[in-house]
Write a protein that binds this DNA or RNA. Sequence first.
RNA 1: GCUAGCGUAGCUCAAUUGGCAGAGCAAUGGUUUUGUAAACCAUAGGUUGUGGGUUCAAUUCCCUCCGCUAGCUCCA
Length: 731
Amino acid sequence: MLKVSLPDGKVLEFDRRIRPIDIAMEIGPRLAKATLAAQVDGQIVGANAFLPDEGEVALRLITARDPEALNVMRHSCAHVMARAVMRLHKGIQLAFGPTVENGFYYDFQTEKPLSEEDFPQIEAEMAKIVKEDEPFERIEMDRIEALQFVKDLGQGFKVEHIETGLAEHGHVSFYRQGEFVDLCRGPHVPAAGAIGAFKLLSVAGAYWKGDATRQQLQRLYGTAWFKKEDMEAYLTKIEEAKRRDHRVLGKQLELFTIDPMVGSGLILWLPKGATIRRQLENFLYAKLLDIGYQPVYTPHIGRIELYQTSGHFPYYAESQFPPLYSHPMGGVVQELLQLWAKGEIDDDAMAARLEGYMHTNVPARIRPHVPNYEKLPSSRQKIAAMETWLEKQERYLVKPMNCPHHIKIYQSKPRSYRELPLRLAEFGTVYRFEQSGELNGMTRVRGFTQDDAHIFCTEEQVAGEFRGCIEMTQYVLKTLGLTDYRVRLGFRDPASQKYVGSVETWQRAEDALEAVCRNMDLPNLTIERGEAAFYGPKADFVVADCIGREWQLGTVQLDYNLPSPQRFGLEYVGADNHPHQPVMIHRAPFGSFERFVGMLIEHFAGAFPLWLAPEQARVMVVSQKVEDFGRQIETRLRQAGFRVTGDYRAEKIGSKIRDAQLELVPYMFVLGGREAETGQVALRDRLEGDLGTMSLEDAIKRLQAEVEARTIRQVVKGSAGIGGKKEENAY
RNA sequence: GCUAGCGUAGCUCAAUUGGCAGAGCAAUGGUUUUGUAAACCAUAGGUUGUGGGUUCAAUUCCCUCCGCUAGCUCCA
């Protein structure tokens, strides 16, 4: 006897094996037809899966109207895609095919690479399968049986997955749809006909089990929706995101550029972009002074010893720009020593190699000099002598981070507890050699400026200081109208070796951080293990822009390690006249100006609020006859503190307005004979159009008020209208 | 770094099976002196990313390198 309770409170009783679809049928044939899956005691299962024989379950039938149905259908669509690909191509090895936000993918190993040219054919085959409407049939087997089954199918990835990933499962399930059978947990829609609109989006490489050392597969991405309109809306949204791409807008609006001759991932800020950045810098700088930070400046390079002490070198060697050596052989010796350390060169070969450089192979002036090298008794000692030589050379690193420099400022004199918290701030530019495939416009670069600061404080001050950092970040985000964000706590992954410091220290730091955050009632606080910096746990602000994409921006990090005796050994003299170790907080509310401005460009779709707009107003004359009057107004606006330009070309006023609109200039001063006579100005708002005639003073007051309040007048959900049609510009 | 794709004028894009590299916008010169989203005429602009190969002939086919795009891996 099975008792089934439905969401409306009704309880049905069955004394036979029954499936959700049967229950739906009892309620009504139309419901049965619409039922795609079911929720049993909170878990999503297939509509054809048998319910337990006895006991009590809560059942909810899922139709296309329920959000859960979409994922079930998308996963079924992934199977249909895989089936279509296997029909069209020989020798396909199936890997995984899960759903993702807005769609699904399937990983294959193929004999011939797939390309977008194959999409129409695959889509046509999929459409055929959907039309045939064959059912998805669940088959369960025990592990041994299943293993033989996938071996017989010749599906090597599935064999491996059953042997390793599913090692603990006694039984596994398959889904059959026509000739296509796939190892799969399910659930699926009852039959392929339930799949609505779908489209293949892209093909890309992906590593088997996400491991870069394993073979690379072909990943086919697709999207699927119940209604064609939903898919159209989704595709439109993708188009919209493309239209406000900061790389496109950055070029059109002349905000920044990247030149291959300067280098990949190195941003050249054009005057307009630089203006926006400067406004943000000024805004932050004023705030920093206001709340007790002290500005400092530090150089762009530092001796390698500095980073050896901090622990950055050589552990991040592959993501640093190569070190600068004063001796020409420095880099070669360093490289050899690294290979030797990895065991790729044995002791004797290493010693012989170095000896060659020292005495025979290279001109005297660039030889490393180690006295009596050849008299050293063993290869080991020769290598050690070489290491000593290398360490004596001057070696510099382009700085990958600012903290070691700020630590040295802290250590520039003895510190008393009376000086703490000491807050050192710098807009510090750092360089990291990111992988070429990772670079992306302004959001992932190789040189960037952090709005960095390091706070040195006592253990007792940690909570208050940490809280202050989070509040500052919140203030900054709020000012820019970025109200939709979540806070992610990054803790250490106990299984990983990449972290420095003792477990106890980490525990203390993580507890302190979590306590502060819980206390502040931050939105959607999550904890993620393995997301910590190597020296301490952190709180990251993940900001959603106006079309819902997430960006990791600000960060606050707690650090008990760099100040420790094993690293820099920071101290202050306490009230007890004894030395104590301070705690460090690293924080950057924007993260970096590059990424932040890149995100802002997309968030505002290039239409910055007046206080940030590179060009706040443009004076334009109806006729060149009134150019002198126009220039007077332009000068007076500039004197009033505005970033203003003038358009005195022999163009019609409509043309000048159009240009200013497309360049997203917030205000236009339209001046003709009437204004020249009365001395007044006709003001035009980019959003609202003609505001009519007023005195210059009134216009200035209006604009000044908007700047001072840092008003955000619009966050454009649609396109900003760059190159678009007029209808699209309606707000 | 890996897989796939792309690279034509400042920008957006054309160029039949390999057969004289073109348009719009922008720029420059001129005419027009204009009232709230595009006046008109003319001119100039290119070693088709780079280097090599195949061919009578390469923007087109093949290879190298550089750069870009999507995804994967990475992100102190």
